Measured scan of single mutants.
Amino acid sequence: ATNIVGKVKWYNSTKNAGFIEQDNGGKDVFVHKSAVDAAGLHSLEEGQDVIFDLEEKQGKAYAVNLRIK
């Protein structure tokens, strides 16, 4: 899926990971530091509006192509 709108639920820069809550009510999506880095960002803030694509690896959904809304 592409161009999904959501809000950062939480992001821990020590653990280099967090979750994004989908505005469409879907399951929360894992976001890794690699996606944050690829977006040219240093970190994510709780409640921040984002747009992202979903990629599945080994049955788990990940946020990729992250951008700030």
Rank of each mutant, 00 (worst) to 15 (best):
D49N: 12
L54Q: 04
F30A: 05
V50R: 00
A38N: 07
G18S: 01
A39D: 01
E56N: 10
V64L: 04
V36D: 01
L54H: 02
K7N: 04
V36G: 01
E56I: 15
V36Y: 02
H32F: 08
E45L: 13
E21R: 15
G6K: 01
F19Q: 07
E45W: 15
D49R: 15
D23M: 15
N16L: 09
K60F: 12
I20D: 00
Q58H: 14
G47V: 02
K33A: 09
L54A: 03
N12P: 02
N24Q: 09
E56S: 10
Y11K: 02
H32T: 10
G47F: 04
F52M: 02
E46K: 15
F19M: 12
A17S: 14
N65Y: 03
N16I: 04
F19G: 03
G47K: 05
A63Q: 01
A63S: 02
D28E: 08
I4G: 03
H32V: 06
H32Q: 07
K7T: 08
N65P: 00
H42K: 13
G25H: 08
S43F: 12
N3P: 04
E45F: 15
T2I: 13
N12H: 08
N65Q: 04
G59W: 04
V50I: 13
Q58R: 13
I51G: 02
G47I: 02
K33F: 09
L66N: 00
I20G: 00
N3V: 04
L54T: 05
K7Y: 05
G25S: 07
K9E: 00
D49K: 15
F52D: 00
D53C: 04
H42W: 11
G47H: 05
V31Q: 00
G59D: 07
F52P: 00
E56H: 13
V64C: 06
A38G: 06
Q58P: 06
K57Y: 13
D28T: 09
K33I: 06
V8R: 01
I20M: 03
F52K: 00
Q58W: 14
A38F: 07
H32D: 09
T2G: 06
A1R: 14
Q48N: 05
F52L: 02
V31W: 02
V64K: 08
G47M: 04
N16H: 13
A61S: 13
A39W: 03
K9L: 06
G26E: 09
N16Q: 13
I51H: 04
D28F: 10
A1I: 12
K33M: 06
W10A: 04
E56T: 13
L44E: 01
L44T: 01
G25Y: 07
L66F: 01
K15R: 12
K60S: 06
G26R: 10
F19R: 07
K57T: 10
N24A: 10
K9Q: 02
F30Q: 05
D23G: 14
D23Y: 15
V31I: 10
K69H: 11
A61N: 10
K57F: 13
A61V: 15
A39K: 02
A38K: 11
F19A: 07
F19S: 05
A61M: 14
I4D: 01
S13V: 13
D23H: 14
T14C: 14
R67D: 02
D23R: 15
D49I: 15
Q22R: 14
V36I: 11
Y11D: 01
I4N: 06
K15N: 08
E45K: 14
T2H: 12
D28A: 09
E55K: 11
Y62T: 08
K7A: 04
A35L: 03
D23P: 15
K7E: 01
W10N: 04
I68K: 06
K57L: 09
E46L: 12
G18R: 01
L54P: 00
G18F: 06
Q22V: 14
N65T: 03
L44N: 00
V5W: 11
D49Y: 15
L66C: 02
Q48S: 08
I51Q: 05
Y11T: 05
Q48T: 10
N12M: 08
K15T: 10
Q48F: 06
L41I: 09
V50Q: 00
S34M: 10
V5N: 13
A17G: 15
Y11G: 01
K69A: 11
E21W: 11
Y11S: 03
K33E: 04
A61I: 15
N65K: 06
A63H: 01
I68M: 09
E21D: 05
K69M: 13
S34V: 08
V31A: 02
A38I: 08
K60P: 03
K15C: 13
K57M: 10
I51S: 04
K57C: 12
K9Y: 04
G18W: 10
N16Y: 10
L66W: 00
V36F: 05
Q22K: 08
I20S: 01
L66S: 00
D23F: 15
F52E: 00
S43N: 12
A63M: 02
K27H: 10
G25F: 07
V8W: 07
L54W: 05
